[in-house]
C-alpha cells in the first residue's frame, strides 16, 4: 500500500510539473528548425498514426474476442483453422502500407544526403570528452566542453535550467546558409546529435563523415553525444547558436583577427 500511495503521489506530481512547465508536446520528437527536421517529424508522425490505426484494429478485434468469446459466456468454440484468402489478405495489405511508408522516407533520405552548394564548412572532432570545432578555410578553431559546475552534478548546489546542456564555447553559425559538417574523432566513437536540426552522425577515428544543414530560425539549439564513449559520455553536450548572417560575419572576422593577433604576439 505504501508503494502504491507513493506511486500515485509521484505520478500526479509528475503530471502537474509537466502541465505547469512545458506541456505534453515536449514529449514528442522536436519539429526542429530546418526543412528536413520538419519532414522527419512529419514522417515520424505519419508512421506513428499508421501504427496507432493498425493497433486499434488488431487490439480492438482481440479485446472484442476476449469479451465475447469467453467460456463463461457459454460459447462453443469454432473449429476453423485456415483461410487462404484471409492469410493472403494480411500478407498483401501490410506490404502495400509499407510501400506507402517507404516512398516518403526515401525522398527525405535523398535530401539529407545532398550536401551540394554548402557555403560554410566546419570540421567537428570528438574527444574523450569534449568537441573541437574548426571553421575550415579560416583559422578559427576552438574546443567546446561542458560548463556545468561539479557542485551541481554532485548535488551540492541547485541545478540550473540548462544543467548538463551548457558549454563554455558555443558553436556559432549563420541562419539560411548551407553549412556542411565534417566529422571525425580523436579516440573512440562519438556521435554528434542536435535533435532540433535532425542531425546525428557518428564520429569515427581515422575516418570522416559528413552532413549538412540549413537553419531557418536564429536561436540556441542543444544536443549531446549519442554514442557511448566512456566514463563521461553523458557529459559532453553540444550547444549551437544560430545567428543572422551579418552577425555571423562580424563574429567570424573578429575571431579570426583575435586569433591571428595572438599568433603575432607569440612570434
Amino acid at each position: 500500500m505504501f508503494l502504491i500511495k507513493n506511486l500515485m503521489f509521484f505520478i500526479t506530481s509528475a503530471l502537474l510539473i509537466n502541465t505547469a512547465n512545458a506541456g505534453w508536446l515536449d514529449l514528442n520528437m522536436p519539429e526542429g528548425v530546418t526543412d528536413i527536421s520538419q519532414e522527419v517529424f512529419d514522417l515520424h508522425m505519419l508512421i506513428l498514426w499508421i501504427c496507432v490505426v493498425i493497433g486499434v484494429i488488431v487490439f480492438g478485434a482481440m479485446f472484442w474476442s476476449i469479451f465475447m468469446h469467453r467460456k463463461s459466456r457459454g460459447v462453443t468454440p469454432a473449429q476453423f483453422h485456415e483461410s487462404t484468402s484471409l492469410e493472403f489478405l494480411w500478407t498483401v495489405v501490410p506490404f502495400v502500407i509499407l510501400i506507402g511508408m517507404a516512398i516518403p522516407a526515401t525522398k527525405t533520405l535523398i535530401k539529407m544526403y545532398d550536401h551540394s552548394d554548402s557555403e560554410i564548412h566546419i570540421k567537428i572532432t570528438g574527444y574523450q570528452w569534449l568537441w573541437q570545432y574548426e571553421y575550415l578555410n579560416t583559422n578559427v578553431s576552438f574546443y567546446s566542453k561542458l560548463s556545468t559546475p561539479y557542485n551541481e552534478i554532485y548535488n551540492k548546489q541547485e541545478k540550473n535550467i540548462n544543467y548538463l546542456q551548457e558549454v563554455d564555447n558555443q558553436l556559432i553559425v549563420p541562419v539560411n546558409k548551407k553549412i556542411r559538417f565534417l566529422l571525425t574523432s580523436n579516440d573512440v566513437l562519438h556521435a554528434w546529435w542536435v535533435p532540433d536540426l535532425a542531425l546525428k552522425k557518428d564520429a569515427i577515428p581515422g575516418y570522416i563523415n559528413e552532413m549538412s544543414v540549413v537553419i531557418n530560425e536564429p536561436g540556441i539549439y542543444r544536443g549531446r553525444c549519442a554514442e557511448l564513449c566512456g566514463r563521461h559520455h553523458g557529459f559532453m553536450p553540444i550547444v549551437i547558436k544560430a545567428v543572422d548572417e551579418d552577425e555571423y560575419e562580424e563574429w567570424i572576422t573578429a575571431s579570426e583577427a583575435k586569433i591571428s593577433g595572438v599568433a603575432k604576439v607569440n612570434k
Binding site: 550536401h115 551540394s116 564548412h121 565534417l182 571525425t184 577515428p205 570522416i208
Partner: peptide, 13 residues
C-alpha cells in the same frame, strides 16, 4: 554527377 565537393582527410598516426 551529384557529388560536387570531395574532402580528402589525413590523420597522421
Amino acid at each position: 554527377n551529384r557529388i560536387k565537393t570531395l574532402t580528402l582527410s589525413y590523420s597522421f598516426f
